[in-house]
Structure formats: C-alpha cells, structure tokens
C-alpha cells in the first residue's frame, strides 16, 4: 500500500546541511503495523513528516520515491496533497494540544474534517462527530462537542485526535510518539483503543516510538533507525529474539525490564550518537560499537539480508553479515539467560 524508496531528507541551515533521513526504504501493507524505533534525533519523525511532504523549501528538501496506493506522492500538487492528508493518511502527534486549535470547539474541528473530506452537511457532520467521540470512549459525547481542547485531559485529547484521525476512515495512520506524554495507565488505554479500532477498520499504522515495550505489544514489523538510517528491519518477534545489529542489541540490553527479578548491571551503550552535520564515513554506530572491526570505520555497511535465515531480516552491520567468521553473534544474550518471573496480567 505504501512504498517508500530511497527517501532522503535534508535540513538546510545557514551554516550546515544535515541529512536527517538518509536513503530510507520500506513498505507497509494494508492493515499492518510497522514500528519505526530509535532515539531522539535518529530521523524517525522526519521520516513521517517527509512521507506527508510536510517538509519543504526553504528549510528542507526531500528526495526519493513515495508511492501510496500507486499514487506518486512526490508528484502531487497542493490539492492532491490535501486529499491525501487527512482522508487517506492521518497523523497523530505526541502533544495533541499543539495539533488542536485552542479557540475552536472539538465539535467544530471534528465537523470541519468531515465536511471537507467526506462532503457531509453541517448537521450530518455533527451527528457523525458525536458517534466518533462515543467510539473512542468519551463520556457525554453530545455535551463535550461544545467543549474546547483545554477542557479535556491529556488522555482525552489524545482520544479526540484518534477520533479525528479515524473520522475519514484513512488507510494509514502515522502515529508519532502518541503516548510519550501520557501516564502509563492512560497509555494502556490509548494503545488498547488504537489497536482495537484499527483492527476493526483494517487501518495500517506507522508507529513511531522510542519505547521497545510499546513496539513489542503493537507492531507486526520493526524498523530500527540510527543517525538517519534504517539499521535493522525484521518481524517483531524475530527482531526481539535475534537482534543482529549491535545497536538494536544495545537498546534491548540497556533497559531494565519490569518482569525481571534479576538485578544485574545494565549494559549501556557508551558514548553519544554522531553529529549528523558531519557523520562518520563508515558505519555510523562504529564509534560506540563494542564489536567494531577495521572495515567498520572505513566503509558504510549496506542494509542486507541476515545470513542463515529465510525470514526477511535486514541488518546494516559488517560483523553480523559475516557469520562465516563467527560474526559477533556469539555469546549469551542478557535477556535469554535471565530468569523471568510472573507479573500481574501475565497468563502464562
């Protein structure tokens, strides 16, 4: 349904040009949830904004190919983009307060979307808006239509955003850190809601997050991003069981798990990500990598199929691709040797 090929996004400032997204390619099938995981500044949000062509001159430039349902998004004019955004592809952001208009009631904002994209009458739009609020579990929906965004709590606002995003039955939702600002019990509500509704409506999701726990519970497939590039791509279970890029393994090893009784020392990733105005010539993770070799600093590894497996599993790592020499994939994974205890809500 969505096909992205060689997507490259540059941000240009007076002093430097920064490649925030560097040759990113992926596809999303109808109804599928693809996670884009990474830390601050890795280019995951810039990827989403680029897909909607929300980055452009004078500050930024996008290159590559984006096809949605066969439509060439890069060739769309303003009117075409407007039809695409909102109707076929919807976006939900981290902070709903900045995406909602503070001086318009929720009813008007929801209604406007429905009138614009679905051509509903004012009255029909209002009726549909109420149904949508009910669908996302907002009590007293009729009355709340007349409320302003500030009268809603953070979790309620995010529900409104989900209602708005789903209002035109989009085929794809770009969800950018949608639960990061929320408390954990509210996060559980929102993720549960999004999962249920998108399953019912067969909506695909591009889930952008830094939280590997959220990924584990939501995604079908995962792309890990580091310094503007995809460094690993696999089905969710495969990625968590067989992380083959040292950065992915590092992310998993550096987080304490709530279901783990063992209090062993966390294994942090040393150092900090590179400055993208002047990235290292070879592998971008090389300066922080515990498994680096000579070739890693000299040449950028390509994103290639991991050896000895038939499942699609791409990795950008010289060592992982070189399993003949033993690679780096030997040694025990911290998470497979640890004792896992029962936790509340765990049925096993």
């Amino acid at each position: 349904m969505l096909d992205v090929n060689g997507l490259t996004t540059d941000f240009v400032t007076r002093s430097a040009s920064v490649r925030a997204v560097d040759d990113v390619s992926f596809a999303i099938a109808a109804g599928e949830t693809l996670a884009l995981v990474g830390e601050s500044g890795c280019g995951k949000s810039a990827t989403a904004l680029s897909l909607m062509r929300l980055i452009g001159p004078p500050g930024g430039a996008i290159a590559g190919s984006i096809r949605f349902d066969g439509i060439d998004v890069m060739a769309l004019d303003v009117a075409g983009l407007r039809r695409l955004r909102g109707k076929n592809v919807a976006m939900i952001f981290q902070d709903p307060m900045t995406s909602l208009n503070p001086v318009l009631t929720i009813g008007l904002q929801l209604g406007e979307t429905l009138q614009t994209h679905l051509g509903l009458s004012v009255r029909a739009a209002r009726r549909r808006a109420r149904e949508l609020l009910e669908m996302v579990g907002i009590p007293e929906a009729e009355r709340r239509l007349g409320d302003y965004p500030h009268q809603f709590s953070g979790g309620m606002r995010q529900r409104v955003m989900i209602a708005m995003a789903l209002s035109c039955r989009p085929r794809l939702i770009l969800a950018d850190e949608i639960t990061t600002a929320l408390d954990v019990t509210i996060q559980a509500q929102i993720l549960e809601l999004l999962k249920r509704l998108t399953r019912e409506l067969q909506t695909a999701i591009l889930l952008i997050t830094h939280d590997l726990g959220v990924v584990a519970g939501m995604a079908d497939r995962v792309n890990v991003m580091y310094a503007g590039q995809i460094v690993e791509s696999a089905a969710t279970l495969d990625l968590f069981l067989n992380p083959s890029m040292p950065y992915t393994r590092g992310l998993l090893d550096s987080i304490p798990r709530i279901d783990s009784e063992v209090r062993e020392r966390l294994v942090p990733i040393r150092g900090v990500p590179p400055n993208l105005a002047n990235p290292p010539p070879g592998c971008r993770f090389e300066p922080r990598c515990a498994h680096r070799r000579d070739i890693c600093a000299a040449r950028m590894p390509t994103l290639r199929q991991r050896p000895n497996t038939t499942a699609p599993h791409l990795t950008r790592c010289w060592a992982a691709q070189d399993v003949a020499e033993g690679g780096w994939l030997i040694g025990r994974d911290r998470h497979t040797v640890r004792e896992t205890l029962a936790i509340p809500g765990d049925d096993a």
Binding site: V184, A188, E192, D211, V215, F240, R257, I258, P344, G345
Partner: peptide
C-alpha cells in the same frame, strides 16, 4: 504494573492488561 509494556513480544502477546477507566 500491568500497564507497563514489556519489551518482549512473547510476553506482550499473552498478557491480559488491567485497563483502568477514566482519568
């Protein structure tokens, strides 16, 4: 405790979450 996501798809797949209502 049940609301905290666990970075393990096997655990997530079999968990039954207590989802609290309201704020």
């Amino acid at each position: 405790l049940s609301a905290v996501p666990v970075p393990d798809p096997r655990v997530e797949a079999r968990r039954r979450r207590i989802v609290l209502e309201g704020d």
